[in-house]
Computed example of a mutant assay.
Amino acid sequence: MGQMITLHSDTPIGAYLAEPANPTRGGIVVIQEIFGVNAHIRDVADRIAAAGYTAIAPALFDAVQPGVELGYDTDGIGKGVALMGQVGFERPLKDVAAAAKYIAHTGKVGTVGFCWGGTVAYAAAIELGLPGVSYYGGGNTHFVDRPAKAPLMFHYGLKDTHISADDRAKVAAANPDAPLYEYDADHGFNCDRRATYDAASAKLAWARTLAFFAEHIG
Rank of each mutant, 00 (worst) to 15 (best):
M1S: 15
M1E: 12
I5T: 10
I5M: 12
T6W: 10
L7I: 12
H8L: 14
S9N: 10
D10C: 11
T11C: 13
P12C: 06
I13Q: 05
I13V: 15
Y16I: 13
L17T: 06
T24G: 00
R25V: 02
G27A: 05
G27W: 05
V30L: 05
I31P: 15
E33W: 01
F35N: 06
G36F: 01
V37N: 09
R42P: 04
R42Y: 00
D43V: 05
A45Y: 13
A45M: 11
T54P: 00
A55Q: 02
F61L: 11
D62G: 00
D62A: 07
A63L: 08
P66T: 10
V68H: 03
V68M: 09
V68E: 00
D75R: 11
D75A: 15
G78N: 14
V81N: 08
A82D: 15
G85P: 10
V87H: 13
F89H: 12
E90M: 08
V96G: 02
A97L: 08
A99N: 06
A99T: 08
A99E: 07
A100M: 00
A100K: 00
I103D: 10
A104M: 11
A104D: 14
H105Q: 09
V109W: 08
G110T: 04
G113T: 06
V120C: 14
Y122F: 14
A124Q: 06
Y136W: 10
Y136T: 09
N140I: 09
T141A: 13
F143K: 02
D145A: 15
R146A: 15
K149I: 13
K149Y: 10
M153D: 00
H155R: 09
L158N: 12
T161N: 08
I163Q: 00
I163W: 02
I163H: 04
A165T: 07
D166I: 10
R168Q: 14
A174T: 08
N175F: 00
A178N: 03
L180K: 12
E182W: 07
Y183D: 05
Y183V: 03
D186G: 10
G188W: 01
N190D: 11
C191T: 08
R193N: 14
A195H: 06
D198S: 03
A199T: 00
A199W: 01
A199V: 05
S201W: 01
G218T: 01
